[in-house]
């Protein structure tokens, strides 16, 4: 692998609606292969920042720079699931193929390359057997993996950056684990940089290489290890442990310095 390149650089960035910033003072860099989790409570500006990075909002202040070689088609996006989709009458195949729409140009139909890309994407996410199933009949976890496949096949020459907005919403514990595994595999095996919005701080610590904490402004940005040793990080981990303790076996009640021990069991090796 060549040296990782800086994909995104934000400096004092602010996004908002009608001139009022919903999130401000964001300064960060995302390097190729990074796994960044964006955490924060409701209304902390997580989704607004994502919309901004996708170019759906204009910066109110600061700068947002993309690596010059990073084409829009190198970036993938998995939005929050909407209610329309849950029972939508579409086959998995139709959904995945729709990822190729941006490359359709003026053609009214998909071509062989599109179908091959869709097939490949389904295989990468291990859902090739579902191609003919109805999307509405799948479990929540399967639906998310199909949507990930759609995002994956949208990229021309391999995805470089994948942005996910609360992908774990509404999933049960085992579906979450599977989806985290799928995302981690995309990150580690294909070198795709991940930016994931989540409110699961513990999962962020377990899986991410970097963490961004938003509270209407940037409260923390840095490596996961560093995050665990700042006060912001320790407080957030302790808070999130409140509802996670039953499953994590009380390990996080130990002193803050030790909590990596439990986290490490979920994640093998640090980047």
């Amino acid at each position: 692998m060549t040296d990782p390149v800086t994909l995104i650089t934000c400096k004092d960035l602010a996004f908002g609606y009608d001139g009022a910033p919903a999130v401000h003072d964001v300064t960060l860099t995302v390097v190729g292969g990074d796994y960044l989790c964006v955490v924060g409570g409701n209304g902390s500006g997580k989704s607004t920042l994502i919309k901004g990075m996708l170019g759906l909002l204009k910066p109110l202040a600061g700068t947002l720079c993309f690596e010059p070689d990073l084409k829009p088609s190198d970036m993938g996006y998995l939005p929050q699931q909407n209610t329309i989709q849950r029972n939508f009458p579409a086959s998995v195949w139709e959904v995945v193929l729709s990822g190729r729409l941006g490359r359709l140009g003026l053609s009214p139909v998909y071509h062989r390359a599109d179908r091959e890309a869709a097939r490949e994407a389904l295989a990468v996410l291990g859902v090739e057997g579902l191609a003919k199933s109805g999307f509405g009949e799948l479990s929540g976890g399967q639906q998310q993996r199909v949507l990930l496949a759609r995002t994956l096949c949208a990229a021309t020459d391999g995805l470089k950056l994948l942005i996910l907005d609360e992908p774990m919403n509404g999933l049960d514990a085992s579906a979450k684990l599977e989806l985290y595994a799928a995302i981690t595999a995309l990150n580690s095996q294909q070198g795709i940089a991940i930016i994931m919005v989540t409110h699961d701080v513990q999962a962020a610590v377990d899986y991410a290489s970097h963490i961004l904490v938003l509270e209407g402004r940037q409260a923390f940005f840095g490596g996961t290890h560093e995050f665990q040793h700042t006060r912001v990080g320790q407080e957030l981990i302790r808070d999130s442990c409140g509802d996670a303790c039953e499953s994590c076996g009380m390990a996080y009640l130990a002193t803050p310095g030790d909590n990596r021990a439990a986290g490490a069991t979920h994640r093998t090796g640090e980047r």
Binding site: L54, L56, P72, P79, A90, S98, L101, G102, L104, T151
Partner: peptide, 20 residues
């Protein structure tokens, strides 16, 4: 516009984000 109408019906947010 069949495929485009499908995409916009199924997931408008995604469609917008991918430049449709």
């Amino acid at each position: 516009c069949y495929h485009r109408i499908f995409a916009v019906t199924f997931d408008e947010t995604y469609a917008r984000a991918t430049g449709i």
